[in-house]
Amino acid sequence: MYEIWLMLNIVYEIVLPLWPGLLALLVVWLALLAKARGPALGRQGGPALVLGAAAAALLFVGLPSLTQSSLGNLGYWVDWAFVAAVAVAGGAAVGLLLWPLLALLRGGRAT
């Protein structure tokens, strides 16, 4: 329980200097989502998922070097699990962010 509380606090301290930007991004995303509401949004779910998966793959490969390390230093199962979890979370965020944007840009076009 303490470790969960500690992790929440760590996330909070990391987000603290970033939250105005994150809040603005959330507002823009919600506005885009509202504007894109309709059948087009549903049709662009697949492409958004593909882009999210691509972002996750890039993040999986690139995260260590973005943090002054390298893939060569991933020698423990915890490392692989952690990088995979971050990549999935990052990929999901990218997919969600792009989803309404794709619907607005591509309209009802199928992939």
Partner: peptide, 9 residues
């Protein structure tokens, strides 16, 4: 005592 990227991060 296991070295790891996670501990580095």
């Amino acid at each position: 005592l296991q070295e790891s990227y996670f501990a580095w991060l």
